[in-house]
């Protein structure tokens, strides 16, 4: 048997590293609890106030997005998991030990990405289907429900998990570029939370033209079974978010290879 290192060896190694520190394990737990817990709570709140809900709100009610509402909070947890997976190597200095063992940097970054994508997509899809089903069970009998038998509904739930996975890739890629945990998490939160708030103060024409390209709006489009008039639509949204992730990752990988560790 050859002793030459390959991508699978490094991926196995990174998997051991991922599950042997508390920050990533706790991050996944927080992510799970936030998505499912908040999704359930919000669904329950909607049900309990349904009798006093206005007619127009009842007409525009979306049982899919509402049951998935926890993802709006959980997206920060997955972002942080992605960020810390690389920045903790820099803050602890362990990146030097890691690179001495895996001198091919593209291989190292690829292995980390594989571990991150596989673990987050599994957890994301699980928790998105779970929160959807819990939400519909809560709504049942009082509030209109949605069924996974509907193709658009199924797509929304699947895309919710994909959205979260793409966010963790973006967090990881920002980590490759910025390398400092706190700075990187701030940038991530700014993109998802602060920029949309800034947009609220901009002229309406700008909002209409550009707001839909924000990652958070792309996520909304991916998770909704409807296609609002102003929207890019779920498939365009996922394509654009994939492009964002690939570009930021490409920049991160290039900088990682070129810079001194």
């Amino acid at each position: 048997m050859s002793n030459d290192q390959n991508l699978l060896d490094v991926t196995k190694s990174e998997w051991i590293k991922f599950r042997s520190v508390r920050s990533s394990v706790m991050g996944v737990v927080v992510f799970f609890v936030l998505t499912l817990g908040l999704g359930g709570l919000i669904s329950w709140a909607v049900r309990s106030h349904w009798s006093t809900t206005s007619g127009i709100d009842k007409l525009t009610f979306d049982p899919v997005s509402t049951s998935l509402a926890g993802t709006l909070f959980a997206q920060f947890a997955v972002g942080v998991i992605g960020v810390l997976f690389i920045t903790s190597e820099y803050s602890s200095g362990s990146i030097r030990t890691t690179l001495a063992a895996v001198s091919n940097r593209a291989r190292l970054v690829s292995a980390k990405l594989v571990v991150l994508i596989l673990s987050i997509i599994v957890v994301s899809e699980l928790v998105c289907f779970a929160t959807f089903l819990v939400g519909q069970a809560v709504f049942k009998g009082v509030v209109p429900t949605a069924s996974l038998g509907n193709a658009d509904v199924l797509r929304s739930v699947v895309f919710a998990g994909v959205y979260l996975t793409l966010l963790t890739i973006i967090g990881f890629s920002l980590g490759l570029i910025v390398r400092h945990s706190a700075a990187c998490i701030s940038i991530f939160v700014t993109i998802l939370l602060i920029v949309p708030i800034i947009f609220a103060f901009l002229p309406t024409s700008w909002q209409n033209s550009y707001e839909k390209y924000l990652p958070s709006e792309l996520g909304r489009a991916m998770m909704s079974p409807f296609a609002p008039t102003n929207d890019l639509g779920a498939w365009n949204a996922i394509l654009l978010l994939v492009i964002y992730a690939v570009v930021i990752f490409g920049v991160g990988l290039t900088m990682m290879i070129r810079r001194d560790a």
């Binding site: 048997m1 002793n3 060896d9 190694s13 051991i16 520190v21 602890s92 200095g93 001495a100 063992a101």
Partner: peptide, 27 residues
């Protein structure tokens, strides 16, 4: 084999897991 900076290890990981991850990466 190199020892550059003894503290260049993730503080939250056990010694055994640290070494296991390194071992696995190099078969």
């Amino acid at each position: 084999g190199a020892l550059l900076d003894a503290k260049a290890v993730h503080p939250g990981r056990t010694a055994r897991n640290h070494l296991r991850a390194l071992a696995v990466s190099n078969r």
